[in-house]
Each structure stands twice: as structure tokens, then as C-alpha cells.
Design a protein around this nucleic acid. Structure first.
Length: 591
RNA sequence: CGGGGUGUGGCGCAGUUGGUAGCGUGCCUGGUUUGGGACCAGGAGGCCGGGGGUUCGAGUCCCCCCACCCCGACCA
């Protein structure tokens, strides 16, 4: 294949588009790969679509290699299946809903668990038919509140979603592992630097779940990673390592006057001016205080209820972590109007004695897992300007349960080996999880087992953001000059720049070389534009980012062409006669 | 949904106390150029985001919408 720049539907831009912030967005638009068409929707131009197709095909090859079979559903789906799993409600405003001319409800598929489940139910009915894995590469729709960063978070995007169907847990584990291994091969081939992290299963339900995160500053996910073992997890899913309490005799709880101390800092400062000390005899620190935060939990059915969460005073409540565990319910701030309805709550001095379903406020009270049985705290006394010290969890107060709510920080102990962990940002490019029987039960997907009895099928669900992967490659593989596509997905192997005029020796040699490369099975992007200065052609070649750039120009006088590696910048001169073979060799060897 | 910002030829921007719109780039024509976004000359291209108001007169002032970007909230 030879793409000719003289005819290619392409316009590169000299300046970054003003509405783009992240490098991938700026460069993909500047280099003429995509154009914005709608909020969160992009048009793929010829070279961009070529990349998209190549990513799709890598995904396809690896999915086929594990025996998964490709199907294709409509994006326009009926309401009923999503009603059966309650996702019509649970998905909330993110679901694109529409009606036909008769007023019947439809949706644009955000993901297709229900449809795949029903398809298997439609055709299969025996344990002998399983296992089976099916997938599709499909346009997905999500009414994002705020699409951002170009292709990274759109309202319409391409996703490969696959689903495994097994008779039992062992089968599911094997299907899960096969997908996980396939994903590793896919992202390796795409040359994306990634980390596999433990994840929450979120609104999808299910148990075992891991995310593939591309390490990237502009990522929206935060994950922790152990500095010595291989533990890595999304911060939402971190299981905090709980340390036992030192066995200290704690004096009886004592109410102390603490005027003008609505904040943790002011409280600690004031206490340390008194004769009171913590049970260990040390001065009080923020981490000795127990902060009780009230939030409003909004359920998918529209009802809401207050919830109190107790966390160590030196840490904030991480709303994302909290919400991940209350999913699909949502968490909202507890405003003054809500406070007014609970006279038992003294703002700034809320303490455990007022919290709990059987206490004065009647508000459910959960303690962060860092608050362990037997630990002693400074906390609110439910009266203005008063706190309680030496208040021991288990001895002096109780709660309705525990929850992971406090923020996770760099340096926190790894739950596996207790070494310090680091925190980084990443972009979710893949997600594998064991759904279990949630969807099969909701939609009644059963097969006859070898005893002739009905058995509910167990499922796995696996996704890769294809369009997002294109953006992630651009994000992780560019420099100040432009993009650098890995050979596996570059729109062409070689960008041949002809610096001469139409019909001169240089132009003729360039055309000849392009043809030879084409015959050798190398894909070529040929800059055969007439009257365009060499500088412009070089800039465009660097911006567009083919892995190899070949310059046919003044070197021809010495009988050579220049071969450049886009990523490393290495240049070498090659005799014209050997050029095609030499370049073909570079392309085939994958360098 | 809250906070901040921006809307002016394809793209990037300027536009003063209100006087009927300009620069760069890109595009077209002709010519000179050809190894790092060349030069000269001549062109085409604008409902100044939309609506209402004030005014003799609005890109500019006032009000209301809308869109986009960023932060937060949200997020297979």
C-alpha cells in the first residue's frame, strides 16, 4: 500500500488546537488523525482510521487465539433486558435513553452483558456446550457528564467487550486467566507501558477484578504500587493493612473543655497546652483524633439516607473509595439543611455517642478499618466546645460496621509485605472481571448439568477500550516534534520524503524506491507533493510519526538515501540500490 | 451539578473612551525558490456563539440563553 500525500485527505496544523489540553489530543488533531464532530465524539480521518483498524486487528488476533469467537450486536437496544438486571435504573443518567415513534424505550448500549447472556441462553442449553467465550468490537455510548481529553474519555467510543460462560468456578478461573494472558499480549504488542492492578468490580457486580492501567500523568485513575513486592491496586480497591494496637492501659474516658476547636488542628494544638497526654504519654497528634464525617447516601431508586463515617483525624475521607464500596449508591455532601434535621448532631463536635442506628441521631455509623478494636481516641463529645479523650473503641463506644473510607497515601504500608507503597496515575485501558452468576441469575441462563439438573452458568466480562488505546499510545509515545507510532499500528511502515521537483532525478528515484518497498511488502506513506519545501515535509513527517523516515534528496548525488528512525532520531545513509532491501529488513525485524 | 475560563475567516489570535473588523498561518493565481515550517505580488474567505435590550450607531455596554475547555463531583 502506498499512501500519497499529494492526494491523501489530510491537513496538518501548525498550531495546537485551542480546545485541547493533553498531548494525545493536541497531536492527533494537529497531525490530522481525528477531528471533533460532537461533544465527546470524534471523526476518524484516513490515517487515524488505519491506526484504529490495526489496533482492532491485534485485539482480534489475540482474542481468536484464545478461542473467543466474534459476534456483533446492535448498539440500539431494547429496555427490557436492562430492566431485568436493574441496570436501566442503576446506570443512572450515564445511560443514553431514547424512544421510538410509539414511545417505546430504547438505550444505546454502554456495555452488553445482558445481550450476550440472552444470546447464549437463546442457543445453548447443555453443560456440554460450555465453556464458550464471545466478543465484539463495538461502538459504545455513555452520556458522560464531562467528556474530556479528546479520545481519552468520549461519549461514543470503540470497545472490545467479551464474555465467558462456564459451568463452574474452575472453568471461570481458567477463562479469566486466558483473557488476562491475552490482554498482556495485546498491550505488549501495542507497546503500552501498563500495570495490572486489583480493582473494584463496581456497578458490574462480581468478585475477582483487575484493571490494566497505562502509566500516564494525565490518567484519571490513581493506583498504589508496592516498592518491594508485586502488589498493585486501584486506590478504590486497596485493602488497608491493619496494625494491632499496642497493649497500653488506657485511663477512663474523660470529657474535656475544648473551646474554639472546630478543626482537628485547633483541637490538637489546644490539648497539648493542657496537662492531658495520649495513653502512650506522648503529645497528641492529628492521628490520635477520630473525625466523624456525615454524608448523604443516594440510592439508585431515588431514596437517600445519612451515613456517618469515622476516620483518623490526619486523613480525609476519600469519597471515591467510600462510594466504590457503597456502589451503586452515590455519596453526596451533607449540607446545612440536612444538619438542621438532626438536632443530635453538633457540628464540629460530633462523637460516636450520638451515632449509630440505636443512638440519638439514628444515623448508621461505620468506622474506617484503620480504627481497630481497643484503640484510644480523642473525639467529639456531642456538645459545643467539648471533646472526649481516652475514648476506646470496643470499651467505650461501638459502631454498625467497618468500611474502607480513609484516603490512601504514598508511603502507606503494603497489605502484603508492609513495605511502603507509591502512588501513581494511570488510564484504564482494560478491565477483566469474574462476574459470577449475577447476570445469569437475573436473566435465567441455565444449562442442564451431567446429572440432568438445571445449573446456573457463571460468567466473566472483559473489556478493552480500542479508541482509548489509540489515544494512550499517542499519549505515551510522542516527543516535542510529534507522534511516534509503534510499527505494529503505524498507518505505514515508512514515510518517504521526496525533496525534489516533479520529474527530476530525485523525484524519479523516490517513486522507484516507493514501488520497490511496496513490492517488498512494506507499507509506504509517500510525500510526493510538488512545490512544498523540504522543511515543511520534514516537519510533517515528524508530526505524523511513521516509525521509519526515508529522505530521497540531495544525498542522491553520492548515490545514497537517508534512513531515519523516528523514535531514536538515528540516521544513516544507504546506497540507493540497497535501500529497498535494507529498509524492508528494518521493517520486518520490527525495530 | 458547583467553581473558573474562553467563544471574532479552516487553525492560532488582536480589536483602545461604542463609529460598521484586522494580524499571522492555511487556501487560490502568477513568478522566484527547494535539506529544516522560503520570498514577492495579487486574490477568495467573517450572522464577531445565539436571542433580546440600551443607543443615531454595538465585536465592544446591559440581560438571558447556548457551546467549548479546565478543576471538582460523576465515570464499563
Amino acid at each position: 500500500m502506498i499512501h500519497r500525500l499529494s492526494h491523501l485527505f489530510l491537513r496538518t496544523l501548525r498550531d495546537d488546537p485551542a480546545d485541547a489540553e493533553v498531548p494525545s489530543h493536541k497531536l492527533l488533531v494537529r497531525a490530522g488523525y481525528i477531528r471533533r464532530a460532537a461533544p465527546g465524539g470524534y471523526t476518524w480521518l484516513p490515517l487515524g482510521w488505519e491506526i484504529h483498524r490495526k489496533v482492532e486487528n491485534i485485539v482480534r488476533e489475540e482474542m481468536n487465539a484464545i478461542g473467543a469467537q466474534e459476534v456483533h450486536f446492535p448498539a440500539l437496544l431494547p429496555r427490557e433486558p436492562y430492566e431485568a438486571t436493574n441496570r436501566w435504573t442503576e446506570y443512572g443518567p450515564t445511560l443514553f435513553r431514547l424512544q421510538d415513534r410509539r414511545g417505546v424505550d430504547y438505550l444505546l448500549g454502554p456495555t452488553h452483558e445482558e445481550m450476550f447472556t440472552l444470546l447464549v441462553k437463546d442457543l445453548y442449553s447443555s453443560y456440554k456446550d460450555l465453556p464458550v467465550s464471545l466478543y465484539q468490537i463495538q461502538t459504545k455510548y455513555r452520556d458522560e457528564a464531562r467528556p474530556r481529553a479528546g479520545l481519552l474519555r468520549g461519549r461514543e467510543f470503540t470497545m472490545k467487550d467479551s464474555y465467558s460462560f462456564d459451568n463452574d468456578e474452575a472453568g471461570l478461573a481458567a477463562s479469566y486467566q486466558a483473557h488476562r494472558d491475552a490482554y498482556i499480549r495485546i498491550f505488549d504488542r501495542l507497546k503500552i507501558p501498563y500495570v495490572v492492578v486489583s480493582a473494584m468490580s463496581g456497578a458490574m457486580g462480581g468478585s475477582q477484578s483487575e484493571e490494566f492501567l497505562a502509566e500516564c500523568e494525565v490518567g484519571e485513575d490513581t493506583f498504589v504500587r508496592c516498592t518491594s513486592c508485586d502488589y498493585a491496586a486501584n486506590t478504590e480497591a486497596v485493602q488497608v493493612r491493619v496494625t494491632a494496637v499496642a497493649n497500653v492501659d488506657v485511663p477512663p474516658a474523660l470529657v474535656v473543655d475544648t473551646p474554639q476547636t472546630p478543626t482537628i488542628d485547633s483541637l490538637v494544638a489546644l490539648l497539648n497546652t493542657t496537662s492531658h497526654r495520649s495513653p502512650t504519654g506522648a503529645a497528641f497528634a492529628a492521628g490520635d483524633t477520630l473525625k466523624n464525617v456525615i454524608v448523604m447516601v443516594k440510592h439508585p431508586d431515588g431514596t437517600s439516607e445519612p451515613l456517618a463515617v469515622g476516620v483518623p483525624g490526619d486523613r480525609e475521607v476519600d469519597m471515591k473509595r467510600l462510594e466504590a464500596q457503597l456502589s451503586p449508591s452515590e455519596v453526596e455532601p451533607f449540607d446545612d439543611a440536612a444538619f438542621a434535621k438532626f438536632p443530635a448532631l453538633v457540628k464540629g463536635y460530633i462523637g460516636p455517642d450520638a451515632l449509630g442506628t440505636t443512638r440519638a441521631s439514628g444515623i448508621r455509623y461505620l468506622l474506617d478499618t484503620r480504627v481497630v478494636e481497643g484503640s484510644s481516641w480523642v473525639t467529639g463529645a456531642n456538645a459545643k466546645d467539648q471533646h472526649i479523650i481516652n475514648f476506646v473503641y470496643g470499651r467505650d463506644f461501638a459502631c454498625d460496621g467497618s468500611i474502607e473510607a480513609a484516603e490512601v497515601r504514598a508511603g502507606d504500608a503494603c497489605p502484603h509485605c508492609a513495605s511502603p507503597m507509591s502512588i501513581d496515575r494511570g488510564i484504564e485501558i482494560g478491565h477483566v472481571f469474574q462476574l459470577g452468576r449475577k447476570y445469569a441469575e437475573a436473566l435465567d441462563l441455565k444449562v442442564l448439568d451431567h446429572n440432568g439438573k438445571q445449573s446456573v452458568v457463571t460468567m466473566g466480562s472483559y473489556g478493552i477500550g480500542v479508541s482509548r488505546a489509540v489515544a494512550v499510545v499517542a499519549e505515551t509515545c510522542h516527543d516535542e516534534l510529534g507522534l511516534c507510532w509503534p510499527r505494529a499500528i503505524a498507518p505505514a511502515d515508512v514515510h518517504v520524503v521526496i525533496t525534489g521537483k516533479a520529474g527530476d532525478d530525485i523525484s524519479v528515484a523516490g517513486e522507484k524506491l516507493a514501488q520497490e518497498l511496496h513490492r517488498a511488502g512494506v507499507t509506504v506513506l509517500l510525500d510526493d507533493r510538488i512545490g512544498v519545501s523540504p522543511g515543511v515535509k520534514f516537519k510533517d513527517a515528524e508530526l505524523l510519526g511513521m516509525p521509519t523516515i526515508v529522505v530521497v534528496g540531495k544525498g542522491l548525488l553520492e548515490g545514497v538515501v537517508e534512513v531515519r528512525d523516528r523514535a531514536t532520531g538515528e540516521r544513516s545513509n544507504v546506497a540507493v540500490g540497497d535501500a529497498a532491501q535494507h529498509i524492508a529488513h528494518i521493517c520486518k525485524s520490527g525495530s
